[in-house]
Design a protein around this nucleic acid. Sequence first.
DNA 1: AGTATCCTGGAA
DNA 2: TTCCAGGATACT
Length: 293
Amino acid sequence: MPELPEVETVRRDLEKYLIGASFQSIKIINFKNVAPRATFLAKFLKGKKIVALGRRGKLLIVDLSAPDKHLLFHLKMTGQLIYEQSNKTLAGGHSLSDDSLTKAVGGKLPNKYTRAIFDLDKNRHLYFNDIRKFGYIKLVSNDELRDILKNNYGPEPMDKEFSFDYLKELCQKRSAPIKAVILNQKLIAGLGNIYADEALFAAKIRPDRPAKSLKRSELLDLHNLIIIIIKQAIKARGTTFRNYVDARGKKGNFVNYLQVYQRQGQTCLVCGGIISKIKVAGRGTHYCPHCQK
DNA sequence: AGTATCCTGGAA
DNA sequence: TTCCAGGATACT
């Protein structure tokens, strides 16, 4: 599931290929989570350029050459944003092929899960794929974007504002499970189910502990490890457990470093005990009963 | 604070 | 055939 490290990987990839690209035409296919409606969006985007790619939590923000307009992408559970340049015969007769790069997504694009196609200049194409159609595409003004960010996104792990004191204050008065607290995007932006479980394992804290029950030393560890794990995951280009791929259709490598996520029934890599799976905050939750107290 | 909802595919 | 995956929101 695309969380902060996955969206950041896509953002960095797209930044390499799409800065300065201008929209030619767009197609929306059997997909409702688009605002404004597809025909208006297509007309608006035509000729506009991509000037910057930003991110807040799991939200990808495309700044456009139109003043006061941003195109937002949220991948939710199964969204993918894949860049491709069409095969093109060069002056010398050589053929430019992207086949090796499209193989990771299982063949040619668009595919049956392609919900939007953005055709850009220089034979560049951006495909928005989403099996479950939970993701969304939204064109917003400066004011709308400011409100969205202000109302829904707390500081993210690498921000200065995500200090130890901030985390301590969040937890002090909450009886909700610590996992629910660190998953709440309004409190900390960017963690999802994978990195929440991994951070709590690394900090040796049971996910169902009431947040207010955490000791200072545990909060210190959790604060440090959230930051460290998110950084490591970005370095590894994210985690591909099911559907996530980067902007070139390739898988993330952090799956090789997972300690507990989806490892229920397997042996703990630290103590050799058996990893458990329970439900916390409505999510499948993986932890080691021996290591995590 | 917990639960239903949006969807679909894959596993049990 | 039913359950599960879990991001975010709308409910209760």
